[in-house]
Amino acid sequence: MDEEIVEFAIAHNRKYSLDHLWYQQKDQKLMIGVSEYMKVEIGDVLRVILPQAETEIDEGGSMFSLWTADEKISLTSPFAGIISDVNGEVEISPDLVNDSAYDHGWVILLEPHELKMNPDDKQVLENLLEPDEYVEYLAEL
């Protein structure tokens, strides 16, 4: 059998969602970006559509969109909160998402309402996967 081998990195100082975004806590905010696995699956990101900073979003609301050669993908938030900052560099150079997914390719900073009320509450992030859980999830796909 010919099995396709896909190579990608997983950053271990982050949590992951089932829709292949990474979340890294920075004080009361979450830095959010696209996992390398998602980039491998969807192909090169050709365009990133960002919201305005200081935008209020609901749980399940749209955070940002990615355009590839084949589709437009809208990514939703697992938390209600305020988008406190956006990485305008990824709009100018979407290759940052492709080439530096866990570093310069971050997309937004979200300030979830739950973390704002209690910054030490780790349960806010409990619906996200630890890196090893994310790898197990990917193995099942």
Rank of each mutant, 00 (worst) to 15 (best):
L96F: 14
G81Y: 06
A69T: 15
G105A: 08
K39S: 07
S62W: 06
L109V: 07
E36Y: 08
D27H: 06
E71F: 15
Q25H: 00
L138D: 11
D103T: 15
I49K: 12
P78E: 12
K122H: 03
E56N: 04
Y134S: 03
I57S: 09
L109Q: 11
K39L: 07
P112I: 07
R47Y: 06
W22C: 10
D85M: 08
P94S: 10
E126V: 05
E36P: 06
L21Q: 11
E41R: 13
R47K: 08
G81T: 10
H113I: 06
I73D: 01
V40E: 12
T55N: 00
L129N: 09
G60H: 07
D19Y: 02
S35G: 08
A11E: 15
L46Q: 10
D58Y: 05
K15V: 09
Y134T: 07
L109G: 06
E114D: 10
V135S: 13
E89H: 13
D95V: 15
D99W: 09
R14S: 02
E89Q: 15
D27M: 01
H104V: 11
K15A: 03
M31G: 01
Y16H: 12
S62E: 14
D85F: 01
T76A: 12
T55V: 05
Q52P: 01
M31T: 08
D99M: 12
V135W: 13
N98Y: 12
S100Q: 13
I42S: 02
E41Q: 13
Y37G: 02
L138H: 10
N118S: 00
M63R: 10
A11H: 15
Y37I: 10
V107E: 05
E136R: 09
K39M: 02
Q24S: 10
D120G: 05
E7L: 11
F64Y: 09
G43F: 03
H20D: 12
A69G: 09
L21N: 03
N127I: 06
N118T: 08
W106L: 06
S84K: 02
E136S: 09
G61Y: 13
S17W: 10
E41V: 14
E126A: 11
Y37R: 11
I83R: 02
I42Q: 02
L21V: 08
E54T: 15
T55M: 03
M38T: 11
V124K: 00
W106E: 03
V97Q: 09
D95I: 15
K29T: 10
G81S: 07
L18K: 14
K26P: 00
N127P: 04
I92W: 06
L129A: 05
V90A: 04
L110P: 14
A53L: 07
L96W: 12
V40W: 03
Y134H: 05
I82H: 00
D44I: 08
E54D: 15
L50S: 11
I108E: 07
G33A: 03
S77A: 15
E36S: 13
L50H: 14
K29D: 09
L129S: 05
Q123V: 01
I73Q: 04
E140V: 14
K29I: 02
G60E: 04
V97I: 14
I57L: 13
H104F: 08
E130S: 05
M63E: 09
E4L: 12
